[in-house]
Design a binder for these strands. Structure first.
Lengths: 199, 199
DNA sequence: TGTACATCAGTGAACGCGCGTTCACTGATGTAC
DNA sequence: TGTACATCAGTGAACGCGCGTTCACTGATGTAC
């Protein structure tokens, strides 16, 4: 047990603590899989600071949770972007993007739940999540433009695809005991049947 | 505010209170949309009994939540069965069953969330939910047997369908602000594209 | 160079609250003799 | 028919706990004069 008083960060470096707090909150949210279960005091204990110090950086508990979710969303988008950039052609890019998201979700099931199912989301919304939706629509549109998917309304197709993929990821997390087929195979069926990709 | 002591149920009718408690819990869970947020004391207040009286019927809080979920599951299965029974032919029966579940989910979004996403589920599992899964597999198999859907592994197809449908219902609840297409249309696309029904 | 002072980063005690659960109890009703 | 007693349905006080948030404070460091 640390009992020493924290050595304050240097002047102008107060933001370092903010990042430490967010990092701790992200880790705990992944384990808890429920934003309501995260207590500000528990986060403070994890970082070895006084509970009140959290208020130096966040106006209240919800703001802390939202900051953690914002970071998760950025990671998720970045993982998708990287995977897509490394792919050869738009069909592969779409598939790679979604597989990257699926891998992230399977590594961080608790965070995925908080990001998509949490009560904080209900109370405040998470407008920053629009970026991820937009990326999927663009990727589907690119497939249609390149002729590897039949021309259609890209937004509708993207929504159907995201719906199925989200269902696939969420259900694997929420019902781990059902006999799930391999994620990549299920995704490929969705890409063929819902988007019309040929593979 | 009721301040009078509750008039005890007649001898042998203690179970009546149990049903009242479950009913209150179901109603509150629908509003809370989160099993962790339901407090045993709040349920007791809603029924106008002492908090301790809940222990006459349930060993602990989790048992109460599970009893509430069991009742919801029964309702959901019954709604599907009734709709299917009124349908003409297996394709219509499958569609009607799922539309009935979708209607139930849209009427009781909070309960749907607790049923599928809750922490209680994580802690104890809800084995009674197998019934609903089995019903979907049977309905898909019936379509294949009647030749209205191409023969395939009914379990795999049913899992894909449930995945997509669950994603559709969950996302509508969790992201109400996205521009969702009408549920019946989206479902019909899934039935055509994933199960192979012709309509 | 010295010193008063502002600023920054962080603390500790205290608040009032609702929670799950335990315990010993109450009071009406049915039953054995 | 009367009465002692068991049983059933439900109560009320108390426990210890962790929570979010507030408030006035501390102590080091940089800056103006």
């Amino acid at each position: 047990m640390e009992e020493t008083r924290r050595r304050p960060n240097a002047r102008g470096k107060g933001e370092l603590l903010r990042e430490e707090i967010v990092t701790a909150a992200v880790g705990m949210l992944d384990e808890l899989a429920d934003d309501e279960a995260l207590s500000l005091r528990a986060v403070a204990r994890a970082v070895s600071i006084a509970a009140t110090s959290v208020y130096l950086h966040f106006p209240d508990r919800d703001a802390l949770v939202l900051a953690a979710m914002r970071r998760c969303h950025e990671e998720l988008v970045a993982a998708g972007d990287e995977a897509a950039a490394a792919a050869a052609g738009p069909a592969d890019a779409l598939r790679a993007r979604i597989l990257a998201q699926a891998a992230w979700a399977q590594e961080h099931p608790g965070l995925y739940k908080v990001l998509h199912e949490s009560a904080v989301h209900r109370r405040h919304g998470m407008p920053f999540k629009e970026v991820m939706v937009a990326r999927t629509v663009e990727a589907v549109q690119a497939c249609m433009d390149a002729g590897v998917a039949p021309a259609d309304d890209a937004t509708t197709v993207a929504i159907d695809l995201r719906t199925a993929v989200n269902g696939m990821l969420a259900q694997r997390i929420n019902e781990p005991d059902l006999p799930w087929p391999p994620a990549a195979e299920q995704l490929d069926r969705f890409l063929v049947k819902l988007v019309g990709l040929r593979r």
